[in-house]
Design a binder for these strands. Structure first.
Lengths: 165, 165
DNA sequence: CATGCACGCTTGAAGCGTCAAGTGAAGAGG
DNA sequence: CCTCTTCACTTGACGCTTCAAGCGTGCATG
C-alpha cells in the first residue's frame, strides 16, 4: 500500500490549513472531554450514550443502534453500558419482540443526569466553537466539515441527516 | 461549575455546523490513524514523534521538547519512546551538556521508517482534507481552525507559529 | 421438528494513556 | 561543601478501548 515516490508535498497554504485543523483535532476533543469529566464525571462517549437514549422514544434503544449513534463499536458500548448500569443510569432488557436484541433503557436517574449535564456541554460547544466564529464562518464550517466527513466516509451519513438512521 | 438554567440552545445553523465538525472530530483522526496503522504499523502519535525527530537538527530532541511538539504528556512520550526503542527506531542518551535532560535520537532504521511512511500519510491528508475543499475553503479553514484553537487554548501556540517554540 | 447458520451481544485478555509516586541530576542558600 | 529544592524524566498501577473468541437467539433448510 505504498504511495508513489516523489510525494506531492503540501504548499504553504495547505500546510497552514492542515496544522490549524490538526490542532483542533487534538485539542478540542480533549477540552470537551475535560469539561464533561470535571463538571459531570463522565466521558464524552458516555454523554453521547446518555443523550442518545434521552432523545429516543421511550428513552430506549437497541445496543446496536446506540453504538452507531454514539460512533463506537458494539463492544465498546457494551462495556460502557455495563458501567452506566452500575452507576444506575441505564438498565438492560432483552427485547421482548426479538430475544437477540438487547434494549438499553435510560433510568430516571439517568434522565436527571442528562438534564443536569446537557446545558454545560452545550455551553462549552458554544464557547469553544461557535462564539469564536462569525455567522459567515459558521456556515463555511458546515460546508467544509461535511465535505471532509464525506471524504473520510463516503457511505457515512452526512451529519445533518444523521437522525433519519 | 453548573451553568445557568434556561440554557441557550443551538440554532439550526449552529447545530448543523457543530454536527459537521463533530463528525470530523471523530472520524478523521480514526481514518488517519487507520491509514498509518495499516500501511506502517504505527499510531499517529508514534508517527509524530518519528517525524518530529526526523525534522530536527541531528535528528535529536529533548524528551520534553518532543512531548510538546507531539502534543502529549511527558509520561506518554516516555512510554512511547520505550516502545520505539524496542523496535530499533529511536535511541535514548542523557544530554552530555546537562544530565537531567534525556535526548531522543532517531536511528538510521528510524529515518528509513519515516521516509517510507511520510508520503503515504501526506497523501492521506491530501485526500481526506485538502482535495475535497476549494482553495477558498482551505483558506477559510485556516482561519476557522486557528480561531477555535485559540478559544480552546488561548496560551497555546497558534499552529502556524508552532515551530518557533 | 431437527440441524446449521447468521446475527446481536458479551466477555476476557492485551495494549495504550493517565495519574501519582519515585529517581537522580542541577542549582540555590547557608 | 552540604543540604534542600526544583526539574526532567521514568515507572507502575489503574481504567478504557480494541480484538478475538464465545454464547444464545432466531431463521432457514432439510
Amino acid at each position: 500500500m505504498d504511495v508513489p515516490r516523489e510525494p506531492r508535498w503540501l504548499s504553504e497554504e495547505e500546510m497552514t490549513a492542515w496544522l490549524a485543523l490538526a490542532s483542533v483535532l487534538i485539542r478540542l476533543p480533549a477540552a470537551l472531554d475535560g469539561q464533561l469529566q470535571r463538571d459531570a464525571g463522565i466521558s464524552h462517549f458516555e454523554y453521547q450514550v446518555l443523550a442518545g437514549l434521552s432523545m429516543s422514544p421511550e428513552r430506549t434503544m437497541r445496543m446496536s443502534e446506540l453504538a452507531q449513534l454514539a460512533d463506537g463499536s458494539l463492544s465498546r458500548l457494551s462495556h460502557v453500558v455495563s458501567r452506566l448500569e452500575k452507576r444506575g443510569w441505564v438498565r438492560r432488557t432483552p427485547d421482548p419482540a426479538n430475544g437477540r436484541y438487547t434494549l438499553a433503557v435510560l433510568t430516571d436517574d439517568g434522565w436527571e443526569k442528562v438534564v443536569a449535564t446537557a446545558p454545560g456541554h452545550v455551553e462549552a460547544v458554544r464557547t469553544l466553537v461557535l462564539e469564536p466564529l462569525t455567522r459567515t464562518q459558521i456556515r463555511q464550517l458546515s460546508e467544509i466539515g461535511s465535505r471532509i466527513a464525506r471524504a473520510v466516509d463516503p457511505d457515512g451519513d452526512c451529519p445533518t441527516t444523521r437522525f433519519r438512521r
